[in-house]
């Protein structure tokens, strides 16, 4: 597979995520779209990891090239998990107060 394909796929997922963030009002869905964006990034990183590995592996079969990207993905997942816990806590807190997860509902702060 040309690397291009993976890049395009990742970008497509990322863009869908962005579009989702822009089109939805439900805070949870928006948050899920962000998660989709993160996954797109993960995919991209893995693809790049593979790409760099391929470039070196012919000369040095035991090269650790590419590991760092996969570990990065690992850490992204870690951070995402932490973020999700906090994010959902915030959304729940908000829901408790206003009984809605509509982001447009809250707009006392403006101008």
């Amino acid at each position: 597979m040309p690397i291009n394909y993976y890049i395009f796929l990742a970008i497509a997922l990322f863009s869908i995520g962005v579009a989702g963030v822009l089109t939805r009002r439900n805070a949870i869905i928006i948050f899920m779209c962000v998660e989709l964006m993160l996954n797109a990034v993960n995919l991209l990183l893995v693809a790049f990891s593979k790409m760099h590995y391929e470039n070196v592996v012919m000369f040095n079969p035991t090269s650790p090239v590419g590991t760092e990207a996969q570990l990065f993905v690992f850490f992204i997942m870690v951070v995402a998990a932490a973020e999700v816990s906090v994010g959902l806590a915030i959304i729940v807190m908000m829901y408790r107060n206003i009984h809605s997860v509509d982001v447009n509902f809250l707009n006392r702060l403006k101008h």
Binding site: M1, P2, I3, N4, Y6, I7, A47, S49, K50, M51, Y53, E54, V57, P61, T62, P64, V65, G66, T67, Q70
Partner: peptide
Amino acid sequence: LQIQKVNTGGQT
């Protein structure tokens, strides 16, 4: 990028 391929297999 057009010619850059990724294959299956590898240790990483």
